[in-house]
Write a protein that binds this DNA or RNA. Structure first.
Lengths: 103, 103
DNA sequence: TAGATACTTAGGTAATTTATTAAGTATTTT
DNA sequence: AAAATACTTAATAAATTACCTAAGTATCTA
């Protein structure tokens, strides 16, 4: 999932899909890249759960899967919160032991 | 930055650092991996801005850089918010044009 | 000062990722 | 039915990434 967000082309696709559903061609249009490459990126986005798509006629329509986005956001948020908690505990520690510097 | 979070070993290191500062050896301890490999991961974490470190004596102490974590969280949050906004607009659209299905 | 500790650097291999071109397939459009 | 459209698949090639071992360097510790 972070792997999926690690590539600029895929982030651009996610960006585009946040504005609403799009076809493969529409996703490819702003990218300087062949269509098969876009397909590969799309497959990684689908494998990561960030994007879903369905084909109707000859057009495949892609859309964002918000649950996955929320998952990534939560992972980061939890760690940030933990770190901020650690900061508090470090503050407590420094208050209790002012004679021993931290680093 | 998402690239840095894309690897499980590096996420494990971030996890550990969220509990507080740690030496390179402490970061390496739970990982089934040579020390030079841990160093490479550490370098990527530092290059991404997620982690900072300083060497005192022969020990290098690493710590999380919360600003970077907040940045990643914001990137995702903004897109999620945009998508949720799009959902609202799609709802409005469907309300206004019930005879034309979305896909 | 000799040895142990804690990284660090260098160099090289295997796996993964990213991208390409060429050649399909399935659906409209004309 | 013929041509155009919108992907898809397959097979590579180039670039990155992830690892490792071996051999340093700089600090402690005894």
């Amino acid at each position: 999932m972070f792997q999926a967000l690690a590539d600029p082309a895929r982030r651009s696709m996610v960006d585009r899909l946040c504005h609403g559903p799009a076809s493969v061609s529409e996703l490819a249009e702003p990218l300087v890249m062949s269509l098969p490459s876009v397909m590969q990126h799309l497959q990684m986005l689908e494998a990561s759960g960030l994007v879903r798509s369905q084909k109707v006629g000859r057009v495949r329509t892609c859309r964002i899967e918000p649950a996955a986005l929320r998952l990534a956001e939560r992972w980061i948020g939890e760690r940030r919160a933990y770190w901020e908690g650690s900061l508090d505990r470090l503050g407590d520690y420094l208050d209790a032991h002012p004679e021993e510097p931290e680093a």
